[in-house]
Design a protein around this nucleic acid. Sequence first.
DNA 1: AGAATCAATATTGGATCCGAAATAGTTACC
DNA 2: GGTAACTATTTCGGATCCAATATTGATTCT
Lengths: 224, 224
Amino acid sequence: MEIEAATPPQTTQQYVLARLRRAILTGALPPGSPIRQDALAERFGVSRVPLREALKILEGNGQVIYRPRRGYVVAELSFDDLLEVYRLRELLEAEAARQAVGRMGEDDVRRLAEAHEDVVAAGKQGDVTAMATANRRFHFTLIDACGMPRLRRFLGILWDATDVYRTLYYSEAANRDRVEREHDGIVRAVRARDADLLVRLLDEHRAGTVATFRGFLTEQERET
Amino acid sequence: MEIEAATPPQTTQQYVLARLRRAILTGALPPGSPIRQDALAERFGVSRVPLREALKILEGNGQVIYRPRRGYVVAELSFDDLLEVYRLRELLEAEAARQAVGRMGEDDVRRLAEAHEDVVAAGKQGDVTAMATANRRFHFTLIDACGMPRLRRFLGILWDATDVYRTLYYSEAANRDRVEREHDGIVRAVRARDADLLVRLLDEHRAGTVATFRGFLTEQERET
DNA sequence: AGAATCAATATTGGATCCGAAATAGTTACC
DNA sequence: GGTAACTATTTCGGATCCAATATTGATTCT
């Protein structure tokens, strides 16, 4: 959910949580696959206790489904789920953007611009993972500035739900160019403190990705 | 978060979770108080393992704050937090209502009306706990009908955050009458399938409570 | 041959135990 | 008398162990 690198894991649960997230993100634990606690714990070199606590976090975020006495399963995303995620992002990010525009200081704007440049740099090198990370930092620099912790948490959950597909999105060069252009507009709107324009640009930005994700999803569901 | 009575706890974690929620709700675990795992586990007659897993769920819902090696503390609600919760409810419940109005069948409307009558009945008897329960059933009958599971979960979290104050709100007879009138209007709007009216009534309904909660909160903060 | 029943195995859930860190209490020193 | 360092105690985090349930496979009966 966050960039963990800033805070190296102090406890085993946090370490396990990070590894679980990576495993889900990279597809090592594909959607729908059951989670064998014993095997995973051994693979991570820990006992089952911290693993189970990490799983409870993911359960709370909706990334795994828990059924008593049956264990945990990696959550799957239907097309309806995808639409819901993007509809909720539309509502919540609009609110976040409007609040953030008024509250961002010069340093915040600078951090936003830096994140933007990182996205571009990663895109130029074709490093999709770095691009996804920088992209998230870009958007959450804006979201964090809204000063609404619950809103921030909700958006984190929504982003996590579709993180798997984001790297796929960036693997196409045309998409990368598009992201670059759109982010540029977003930074300008923030600089101009134009909330309405910013919200509109964010909506358009999302609309581009949701269409592509749709392709991935139907493809995936056809396999099942 | 839910009405647990329908599903008696199959596992100890679920049992502990229900008791934890009750303890927070009733004020047995007041906001800001640290959670001594050993003492609580003994009080509940269980070991610390299921307690810790239940706490992880509450952490995910924002009802407790976790700090590594320091343990869990019951979350406190500042006035800013209250405003955030109600602002987000405004956004999300509007969406839920608009979706629900079109999707509710005759049986859904009937269940809504029944919940409304239960609220009234509990109010007449002055049973604030029963009233709070029925009230939640009333509102979530509407919310559930929207068919958006994430939206539903977010709203559950937001409601949980202020549940402590809801019973206080109902302890005044004037508030109980007001709720009765407003719920009546909401049921009518649903029957008439008038989404705009419904959203407006829900907004007004919330506006009444947030003002009263404000009183409780400043009172509480003064004590600290 | 197919279905149902029963046994063997795998897997989860919970309890107890132990080590490590944080907090509280005590003593010595300035 | 106040503060700092050191020790004791509490409390948390994690590992191992055991019991209960679910799943799988074998066997028997129709």
